[in-house]
Amino acid sequence: MSTVEISDLHKSFGRLEVLKGIDFTVESGQVVCVIGPSGSGKSTLLRCVNLLEQPTSGKVIVDGVDLTDPDVDIDAARRRIGMVFQQFNLFPHLTVRRNVTIAQERVLKRRRDECDSVARENLEKVGLLEKLDAYPPQLSGGQQQRVAIARALAMNPSLMLFDEPTSALDPELVGDVLSVMRQLAEDGMTMLVVTHEMGFAREVADRVVFMDGGVIVEDGPPEQVIADPRHERTREFLRRVLHPGTDPGT
C-alpha cells in the first residue's frame, strides 16, 4: 500500500505558479528526500501534503484518504501526519513536556498520565528526557528541533514530513538532528524530507527526487540521482551544492 500518492498537483500563489503538475508516490516505510534549488517548489510540495497549503488542483492521497476532498476532516487527517519545520516552531510559552503533551491531550483526548509517558518515551528517543521541564528558548537550536520531532512523534503519525529540518542550525548541531532522523528511518517510519544534506540523502534515502522550476526533473535511488544524474539540470545543481564544499547553509 502506498502511503502518499500525489497526482497532477498544481499550486499557484496569485499569478505565480509554484507547482506545475507533480506526480509521485511514497511507499509505506520509504524515506524520500526532495532536493533542488531554492524556489523550486519543494517546500510548497511538502506543505501541500498536509494541506498547510491548499493545492490549486490535483489530488493528495495519504493513507487512502484524499485530502483535497472538501468532505474530509482535515484535522483528523493531520493527526496521522507529523511535520517538522525549518524554524522548529515549538510553543515558547510552554515547557518541553507541555509541548509534547498538549496535542495528545487536546486532540487525541489521551489521559494525562498516558500523555506523560508517551512524552517521556519520545523525548528519550531524541535524547532529551532531562529537558522535560525546560522552556524552548532555553534550548539550543538542535535541541529544539529534536523536541519538535518528539512532539510530532507523540501523535503516532504514519508519515513524517521534514521541511529543511537542519537549515536553521549551526553546523555543529546538524549531526544530532540527522542521527535522530536516521534512527527514525531505521525504525521503519515513512519519511518525506526536504533537505540540502546530500550526505544524509545519499545514505538514508530510498529515493531522491530532484525538483526544479515547479516540476520533478529526476526521481530515483540516490546512487543514481546523486551519483549519476541523467539530466543536465540535476548535474548543474549537484555541482553547485557539492563543490563549494561542506557548507549546507544556502
Partner: peptide
C-alpha cells in the same frame, strides 16, 4: 505571534 505557531498547532491536528 509568528505564523509558524499556528501552522505547528494545525499540523498537530488542532482545529
Amino acid at each position: 505571534v509568528p505564523k509558524g505557531q499556528l501552522e505547528a498547532a494545525r499540523s498537530l491536528g488542532m482545529p
